[in-house]
Nucleic acid binder design. Structure first.
Lengths: 131, 131
DNA sequence: AGTAAAAACAATAATCATTCCTGTTTTTAA
DNA sequence: TTAAAAACAGGAATGATTATTGTTTTTACT
């Protein structure tokens, strides 16, 4: 079990992710962190995102667009994906809690977690659709 | 808009998917349909699965294991993914209906659909874990 | 401060699911 | 029967992600 050593690049990645309310892809993280570390490699970005996700310091989202997105907020909460622009954002869903099933057993299956994605047209794209 | 012509391979793919209660990957469909069509190519399997999904005759599932799964049942229903063996199955979830949000608007976002995945340990793997 | 082992890095090659291309075979409407 | 359109098999290409390798940082211990 390798110990974990400090790295400036990893801190920059965390700081960037923390500063965003949307949920960027590795490529977006890469091009942002490049301002501070012009020589950082995409591999380093992926390695650190994976490490942080394994440590549960960030969450890896797979909304089905074929690209992983990353979220600084690791609490279980639903996401909204715009079918037009592909943006991924948090969604407030009153009275909707898949978490209530976590820890229960259904047909012999033990449930330990869940993930929910909502799809549709985001506010920005609705506005853009001629009005 | 190209019209759609009959194909024996496509019918075999549909029939196989219909016969399964789990949700196989393209590779699994491929090796199964190969019994009937030894020369079928993986590209043909993918092309037809994509075509059928576009026609909403089947559903494409992306439970986050990096591989697409396919479901003959296109009705909106939650799935369960075993963290141990990776199997994907249907899950009965009493009193849990993300669909109730479909058609509503939250913070300006128009919701048109949703997807829910539950994770845990399936009945078979639980049994297998020494008991 | 100096040093050496462990971890992280940059660069780049490899992997793997999926899609695309090309020349041939099926399907189908006339 | 025929000919255009669609589908096919085989294989190349794509693209996100992971693995490899030689070099640089980090850090615990002198």
């Amino acid at each position: 079990m390798p110990s974990i050593k400090y790295s400036r690049q990893r801190e920059a990645i965390k700081r960037f992710l923390q500063s965003r309310r949307d949920h960027p892809t590795a490529e977006v993280v890469y091009s942002a962190v490049r301002n501070e570390f012009p020589n950082i490699s995409l591999g380093t970005v992926y390695r650190n995102l994976t490490l942080l996700a394994d440590l549960h310091e960030i969450a890896r989202l797979r909304p089905g667009d074929g690209v992983d997105h990353f979220d600084y907020d690791t609490s279980a909460h639903p996401h909204f994906i715009c079918r037009e622009c592909g943006s991924v954002s948090d969604l407030k869903t009153p009275g909707f809690s898949p978490d209530s099933l976590t820890g229960t057993e259904i047909d012999g299956n033990l449930i330990t977690g869940s993930v929910s994605y909502f799809y549709g047209l985001c506010a920005a794209c609705r506005g853009r659709r001629l009005r």
